[in-house]
Write a protein that binds this DNA or RNA. Structure first.
Length: 281
DNA sequence: CTACGGACCTGACCGC
DNA sequence: TGCGGTCAGGTCCGTA
């Protein structure tokens, strides 16, 4: 569900609510199956024990991961929202929504809660090295596509380094961190490139167009507080507005915004894919 | 290295 | 109302 812009929005919202706050108590769902799925590292019981009493230093983002460095020893609380995860701060007396699996009472008197109907998300606690060693966090995560971290030369290099359909590359988090199904399709459309095009066959001009398009779609979406398609909401429970600006995603069969040709829906890299047969070559 | 399919879950939606 | 099938912003694993 959440890609880079949605996670970035949540990070920005949570930062003032969480930075400097101490975690007074921690509650995890009692269902052992859900616990095991949700808490990937360390074991659930250890996770609870080690998290209690810790102070959240800051709230950051790496790709689609929320990263919260804790006081001392380089440990961090890491959250991936999967498809349907929500992380937000509630008044303790508010009734928890269905599928609330994790709650942490803060010294501000408010409560940080995680809910996730599909249970694809996860919670991790440890140093960067421990999480990688425990295979809970990817050892190779690609560069951040925005905020000037990725140069055009570097993008060029990684696109040319492997041969695969460009959309498969964009979705691969070890290639580029944070792009998912929505923004991969949107970026390809803006760049005029078919998602099925082979990476090593893109021209220099096409690579440059794609580089700009990726940054454009991500930055525009952050400015609109993310795309709410099915159930994404920000850290205040509010929908973003970028879905209104999506040019191809979710518009299969509808007319192309540029040329009017019905948009083509297909399957690529195992994911629903939409593009314009005429505008994207 | 790559690609493909399936697995992991719930829930919304559609046609019958 | 109900039932089955399909689909969904994501990853991960096994198999070719």
């Amino acid at each position: 569900m959440p890609e880079l812009p949605e996670v970035e929005t949540i990070v920005q919202d949570l930062r003032p609510q969480l930075a400097g706050r101490r975690i007074e108590s921690v509650q995890l769902t009692r269902d052992p199956a859900i616990r095991g799925r949700l808490v990937r590292y360390p074991k659930a019981a250890t996770f609870i024990r080690r998290l209690r009493g810790r102070t959240i230093r800051s709230v950051e983002r790496r790709g689609k991961y929320l990263v919260m460095p804790l006081d001392k020893d380089g440990e961090r609380l890491v959250v991936h929202l999967g498809m349907t995860g929500h992380l937000r701060v509630w008044e303790p007396e508010e009734a928890p929504v269905k599928h609330t699996h994790f709650r942490a009472l803060l010294d501000s008197g408010l409560e940080l809660r995680y809910d996730d109907p599909r249970q694809f998300g996860r919670l991790l606690l440890g140093t960067q090295e421990a999480l990688i060693a425990g295979r809970a966090f990817p050892a190779r995560l690609g560069p951040e596509p925005i905020h000037g971290d990725l140069t055009e030369a570097e993008f060029d290099r990684i696109v040319k380094s492997r041969r695969r359909p460009i959309k498969a590359a964009l979705l691969d988090q070890s290639f580029l961190a944070g792009v998912g199904n929505i923004y991969a399709d949107e970026a390809c459309f803006r760049a005029g490139i078919r998602p099925s095009r082979w990476t090593h066959r893109l021209t220099g001009r096409e690579r440059r167009a794609l580089y700009s398009a990726i940054q454009e779609v991500l930055e525009n979406s952050i400015a609109a507080r993310g795309s709410s398609i099915i159930n994404y909401v920000d850290a205040f429970g509010l929908r973003g507005t970028n879905q209104e600006k999506l040019l191809v995603y979710g518009r299969s069969g509808e007319p192309c915004i540029k040329c009017g040709t019905p948009l083509q829906g297909t399957r690529l890299a195992g994911r629903g894919t939409v593009y314009c047969r005429k505008c994207q070559r």
